[in-house]
Simulated scan of single mutants.
Amino acid sequence: MKAHFFERLRTSVEQMIAIETGELNVAEEYIHTVKIPDVKNLRIAQRLKQQEFAQMLGVSLSLVQSWELNRRIPNGPALKLLIMLERQPQLFETLKAL
């Protein structure tokens, strides 16, 4: 690894730690958060078993279980789909039809 890349990485990590410990404040416009959907409540509200929910989303049963136990956090297209389903539950019917 080139020295300047390593130095930038080290500086970024130090800044992250300073932010986490409250030693460094960041302007609100630089803070972006995404609310992670409550996968279990979303599934239960639709009266779906974990396996049915997994098949509907095109993911594995173990992934759904990990989301529900907070061992893993949904990301990428799955996160976007879950957010859409949370905001527009009628989309479940569309997924069931696929």
Rank of each mutant, 00 (worst) to 15 (best):
residue 25 N to A: 12
residue 11 T to Y: 08
residue 36 I to S: 01
residue 31 I to R: 15
residue 74 P to Q: 07
residue 7 E to A: 14
residue 22 G to H: 03
residue 63 L to C: 05
residue 60 S to N: 12
residue 54 A to E: 03
residue 42 L to W: 00
residue 11 T to A: 13
residue 64 V to H: 07
residue 8 R to T: 00
residue 26 V to I: 15
residue 84 M to V: 03
residue 38 D to A: 10
residue 78 A to K: 09
residue 9 L to G: 04
residue 59 V to N: 08
residue 65 Q to A: 15
residue 55 Q to S: 15
residue 36 I to T: 14
residue 33 T to M: 10
residue 85 L to I: 09
residue 5 F to S: 11
residue 24 L to S: 05
residue 12 S to I: 00
residue 75 N to M: 07
residue 48 L to Y: 02
residue 39 V to G: 05
residue 56 M to V: 10
residue 52 E to I: 02
residue 26 V to E: 11
residue 88 Q to D: 06
residue 47 R to Y: 11
residue 68 E to A: 06
residue 10 R to I: 09
residue 62 S to Q: 14
residue 47 R to W: 06
residue 92 F to W: 10
residue 26 V to Y: 05
residue 70 N to R: 13
residue 54 A to K: 07
residue 78 A to T: 14
residue 56 M to L: 15
residue 81 L to V: 04
residue 13 V to M: 12
residue 47 R to V: 03
residue 96 K to Q: 08
residue 80 K to E: 03
residue 47 R to Q: 14
residue 94 T to H: 06
residue 83 I to L: 03
residue 30 Y to F: 15
residue 93 E to F: 00
residue 46 Q to S: 09
residue 77 P to N: 13
residue 72 R to G: 03
residue 91 L to N: 00
residue 41 N to R: 13
residue 26 V to W: 00
residue 49 K to H: 09
residue 11 T to S: 11
residue 67 W to M: 04
residue 15 Q to M: 13
residue 91 L to C: 00
residue 16 M to Y: 11
residue 14 E to L: 12
residue 91 L to F: 05
residue 87 R to P: 00
residue 77 P to I: 09
residue 7 E to W: 03
residue 91 L to D: 03
residue 1 M to R: 11
residue 97 A to R: 15
residue 95 L to S: 02
residue 80 K to T: 02
residue 30 Y to N: 14
residue 4 H to W: 06
residue 86 E to C: 00
residue 97 A to H: 09
residue 74 P to C: 06
residue 19 I to K: 09
residue 97 A to L: 12
residue 5 F to H: 14
residue 73 I to M: 12
residue 19 I to F: 04
residue 81 L to P: 01
residue 18 A to P: 02
residue 69 L to S: 15
residue 26 V to H: 02
residue 59 V to T: 12
residue 53 F to L: 06
residue 79 L to T: 04
residue 78 A to L: 02
residue 81 L to N: 04
residue 25 N to I: 05
residue 29 E to P: 06
residue 70 N to G: 07
residue 84 M to K: 13
residue 46 Q to F: 05
residue 36 I to Y: 01
residue 71 R to C: 01
residue 58 G to M: 10
residue 55 Q to C: 11
residue 60 S to C: 09
residue 69 L to Y: 04
residue 5 F to E: 15
residue 56 M to F: 05
residue 31 I to E: 14
residue 36 I to A: 04
residue 83 I to W: 01
residue 31 I to D: 08
residue 10 R to K: 13
